[in-house]
Design a protein around this nucleic acid. Structure first.
Lengths: 189, 189
DNA sequence: ATCCGATGTGCGTTATAACGTACAAGTGGA
DNA sequence: TCCACTTGTACGTTATAACGCACATCGGAT
């Protein structure tokens, strides 16, 4: 039915993965423990698999679960241009360098602060870690209640599930900001 | 039934996420378009959701899909990858910006290439992803047999489990090099 | 105390995911 | 050519995901 296709905002890369390994549906079925009929339906978008069966498939192919989910993220740099640009309330300029990848659990932003500009961020979800690498200018980062000074070429890694903030010096600042979300690549059992 | 628990090798973090936002099942149902009965069953592990409904949930909570998947299982940090200083053949200059963190599965290097210098790397372990962000100069990256040109401020993400390489232009280059290691399934081939 | 709204869970029905088998088309081989 | 084999898809059945509704429980307010 087309309902599956229409509902599928999630595009599964099963066919690509299987094609990459050169396996037939039968062998893939034997390898994963999922019937080849079902594998075929999933590939054609006629069926929306359970995460249980999706896990079987991932395990059979010895891949992380996220390798089957979502758009292919290992792409040429052309793709990276059309990713959204985020603008935060404080009107800091944020460009996306590396979009979020569920397989990596990471994304990277390019942030520009005007001279003397500051931005405070509320606590993120639990387990989130941020890394900051200063490209230009000088920067101070509020971490654990202290403002840590950073110069160009310096980096700082800190837990982002606490309130934190950034403020630039008199010359402004530009920095890379990597967000790491807790690894989700599940383990069997 | 414990059959659900047993079959569910994937544990979902729905309950934690919902608790973190302080939402009730009813409001979560209204927000996501998934019935609260089903949400409850999923939380208790009595039902293995379809990726379609899992996607609804993630979208309702405005979270990446991976935020719901998988046990944030604690991997033992016993990893031999804890080297602090890296020296590659060809005498490329490599400084460690962010050391390897087993929780993140990531590390970041600062690499400097002399003008015209090149370095080719063999394939890394399966599933390793690299990200490169050019700080100074111009760079070309060998990926899938093609040399991809990058200028200052540009980035490239690619799978590092294939042979790849870097070479600088006439002015040399400096770039950040992030390595992302996946969590292993542990199954031998 | 009784009401009230909200919480999360159990039940019966419907939709559909998943299976096993059977089938049509394609590929070589002798 | 005929045959043995593999490819992927179609069919009928079973298991279960997902729904709507009803129920028990817990607070807070009156």
């Amino acid at each position: 039915m087309d309902s599956a296709v229409e509902s599928g905002e999630v595009t599964l890369k099963l066919r690509e993965v299987r094609a990459a390994t050169g396996l037939s549906l039968s062998k893939a079925a034997e390898l994963t423990g999922v019937s080849k009929a079902m594998l075929g339906q999933i590939e054609r978008g006629e069926s929306s698999p359970t995460i249980a069966t999706l896990w079987k498939i991932a395990k059979g192919f010895q891949l992380p679960l996220s390798a089957l989910i979502g758009p292919a993220s290992l792409r040429d740099p052309a793709d990276e241009r059309l990713f959204r640009t985020v603008t935060f309330p404080g009107s800091i300029k944020v460009k996306i360098v590396f979009p979020f990848d569920p397989m990596l659990g990471a994304e990277t932003f390019h942030v520009t602060l005007a001279p003397g500009q500051s931005y405070e961020s509320a606590a993120h979800a639990s387990g989130v870690t941020e890394e900051v690498f200063v490209l230009h200018g000088a920067l101070e980062i509020l971490r654990d209640g202290d403002w840590v000074p950073l110069r160009t070429g310096q980096g700082l890694r800190f837990a982002a599930d606490l309130p934190h903030g950034y403020r630039s010096g008199a010359e402004g600042a530009a920095f890379l900001n990597m967000h790491h979300y807790p690894q989700q690549t599940g383990l069997p059992v």
